[in-house]
Write a protein that binds this DNA or RNA. Structure first.
Lengths: 127, 127, 127, 127
DNA sequence: GTGGTCTAGACCACC
DNA sequence: GTGGTCTAGACCACG
């Protein structure tokens, strides 16, 4: 379900968080679907339960999942995260393009990259 | 010459590195121009000389500057860094846009952001 | 009769307890009226009977209901709980307002909120 | 500086968090003032550094403090937290009064409590 | 010395 | 079985 990259400099809990967020946002995990339990996912990834716990806590805090103690963690309704997710993604993009601009990339360079990526990723139905 | 942002989460040496890179790439610092000495720049920014040392080491390692022992640090010829700089910037941009795409941003969302940034940043003469 | 909110962070037995308390205090459940049996209510809410059992135990302990072994649970006389209920509610309110005060809310802020809530909730006939 | 209440049901990190928030909001801790280090405060309170770490992480996440790795934790500018703090306090108050209303307290009951508390707490200069 | 991450293992409340 | 908290102790990057 998730593969960790130990060469990645980011903390493990952040990787887990990001991977799960993608699964949720992309709809692979449907609303109200149950996520693996803290202990199970920890075992599956061979990491400490506390690390998973932390990732789940962040996801809940960001509205991607909700928790029922004693039952498990469940995917939240899109209405709970959709807005925030898009604005945050937009902000990240803005930062990246600003950096690209100040790094000397020309507008046409950027546009070309955009076209290439969106042509390749059209199966995601993001037009 | 350089202003540090202590609220920035990144390590100081990375900030110094980035700021100097910008000055070099943008031509504010000309090829073969001498950079401030480690000690001087450290004093000016009121930070530890080790931090500057580390930043200079990275800049040399990335080909932006060259060192003449006993003389100082000097800006390298653009031919030494231009290619690498652009491809690295391009790669960063690609990653960011890929992420934006998989985060659900549409092509038109991205294009709009690009136009906005490049309209605002036209004084950088990157068209 | 009762609707549970699984998103609520509080334990289920506490929710059940609170809902029943409201029904009793507001007079929807009359003194000496029989409450649903543990098993029935558990089935109706699709939760574990232990949870209902615990809620009933708390209600009895707080004087809202009385138990006749083998017969069932019954709403107690208002004289048994009225005083305690009001002083406890008063105490909670006091704590909340003290916190609001120390959080920097002005007296007029608080008064405004009070008016708003009591204007909206006048159908509860608490003037 | 802080006293923990072990009878309190809330987690320790939340208590620490709340106490520090009060110290910050009330101005006892001034902007840009340094907070005790994670390890020091942990020793002082005789609890595990991780618990303090968690409290500090929450405070940063809520904008009450900012962190400079290797230097320490510092009180953020009021502009960073003032708005959110007040709206959150207002929300808490609203919930409490709604509960009081549905618990059968009359408007005059509530008003009386408000007056009593704000009369007592007038040295806090909250009018 | 500073914060940040991670592990290992324990205990608790809830269901 | 579930999540949540806490401890103890280790290691790392930064300055």
């Amino acid at each position: 379900m998730i593969v960790l990259d130990y060469r990645d400099k980011r903390p493990l809990y952040e990787q887990v968080c990001e991977k799960l967020t993608h699964l949720i946002v992309s709809g692979v995990l449907q609303p109200d679907e149950k996520l693996p339990s803290v202990r199970n996912l920890a075992m599956e990834l061979s990491i400490n339960p506390n690390t998973i716990q932390r990732a789940y806590a962040m996801l809940e805090q960001d509205g991607y999942i909700y928790v029922i103690t004693g039952r498990g963690n469940f995917v939240a309704q899109p209405s709970a995260w959709q807005n925030e997710h898009l604005t945050s993604a937009r902000q990240d993009l803005e930062d990246a393009i600003t950096r690209a601009c100040s790094d000397g990339l020309s507008r046409s360079d950027v546009l070309e990259v955009v076209e290439r990526i969106y042509a390749k990723g059209r199966d995601n139905s993001n037009d």
